[in-house]
Design a protein around this nucleic acid. Structure first.
Ligand SMILES: [Mn+2]
Ligand SMILES: [Mn+2]
Ligand SMILES: [Mn+2]
Ligand SMILES: [Mn+2]
Lengths: 221, 221
DNA sequence: AAAAATAATTTGGGAAACCAAATAAAAATA
DNA sequence: TATTTTTATTTGGTTTCCCAAATTATTTTT
């Protein structure tokens, strides 16, 4: 019987997808092993399996890369993940910083039909609760043209698109400040010394450190 | 790592629960092995494990039985299964004969909080789409006082409560005839020769064989 | 280039579910 | 009761996903 084996495989595909769009120049065994939290030997074994299944290839520079079919698979899992996250927040009243762990389980439910119906039921949302766009049923993803708040210009208005860090402490911090995807803010000023900024959100002035502005992605608005 | 091992274990607990309320006098290895579709050696191994975890005991007559904590676990899985079935029919417009396979996956999502919220969101339904009552969050199940349509009295009115067989062909057959839990019917007549009956549903007369009436459970109405 | 540090790979295991086939025990039947 | 049939158990595998430790590249630094 095929069993639940796909579970692990799917997590590797997702991780590889994530790495391919991260700042890491070379997606090697170590990077993957650290992201996924498994022993390098384990990772090597799985990568070989995925290469054998034509879901992953090794580039000339030795970096790992998803094949088109591997990337499609990854995007369909991400689609499920994000749609379930919308369901959990919109329908079950979870807060946006609680849904990720649950979606980690739900994303592995095997049924494309189910997730398509879910999408329809949710009214074809464009983004998940963290502002990340949801791939369509063919695995196509609209690219977001966002810039880090770090690079925003003082005096201009922006809309928060999404977050570069999904760490729970970070999300809770933002939640307290009422900062989340979709919100409109104005960059009031920037402190040249430590690169911290002041933003205005709903008539309130909020100070944010450089570390925070690096991880908030915005678009001009 | 604990892994997804609970998946299999949970299926065994559910199967044992099912057998304990079936007509089988003695719940032995063979019965369990047939219901769950695994090799007797595999089943024995798992049963020993469950006995070790105090979820199953062996009665003096050698029959397998769930312990109180085993039964509670089983009922909480059944709770999840049935609530997800309600969700799939009520919200995602699945028909009642399609939901079982999907619920087989969803029942293993680990989070009691999630299922409690789901229950609230669905408006605390009393029964699943097949008419089976839904255990509460403590694992308590209201007993249904139903009789097989086979034993119903000609001339009287009944309401369909649930079904003793969940075979897909059977469910599709009933679906075509518009027979499902909640519907009101009248037992018009019984043929003494082959024990078939005529029922009336929405002014229409429908003939049903003995095999079918054995598997439809009703209450007087 | 040689030494040191880092990364990839090999080797030898382990746990959890699974199976088939052989044997032992129990139950049913003659 | 002796024989046959059925059921339980043992034994010796398999697959998948995981680990630690040793070895072998490959880079980086000196
Ligand atoms: Mn997430
Ligand atoms: Mn996952
Ligand atoms: Mn079901
Ligand atoms: Mn199941």
């Amino acid at each position: 019987m095929a069993h639940f084996t796909h579970h692990s495989e799917e997590n590797y595909l997702k991780a590889l997808y994530k790495l391919s769009y991260s700042t890491v120049k070379k997606v090697n065994n170590t990077a993957l092993s650290q992201l996924i939290g498994h022993n390098p030997a384990t990772v090597l074994e799985m990568v070989r399996k995925l290469v054998g299944k034509n879901l992953v290839t090794t580039l000339p520079n030795k970096s790992l890369k998803l094949t088109p079919s591997g990337e499609k698979k990854a995007l369909l899992i991400i689609r499920k993940h994000r749609l379930w996250e919308v369901f959990l927040t919109e329908k079950l009243n979870y807060s946006w910083n609680e849904v990720h762990v649950l979606a980690e389980q739900l994303e592995h439910i095997e049924s494309n039909d189910l997730v398509d119906r879910l999408e329809k039921y949710l009214g074809f949302p464009a983004v998940d609760p963290h502002g990340d766009t949801i791939p369509d049923k063919k695995g196509k993803l609209k690219v977001q043209e966002s810039i880090p708040l770090e690079n925003a210009v003082a005096g201009k208005n922006y809309r928060i698109l999404n977050l570069a860090d999904t760490n729970d402490v970070f999300l809770q911090y933002l939640e307290k400040l009422n900062i989340r995807p979709g919100k409109k803010i104005k960059l009031v000023s920037r402190n040249q010394y430590d690169n911290s900024v002041m933003i205005m959100l709903l008539k309130k002035i909020i100070p944010l450190s450089e570390k925070v502005t690096k991880n908030i992605l915005v678009e001009p608005a």
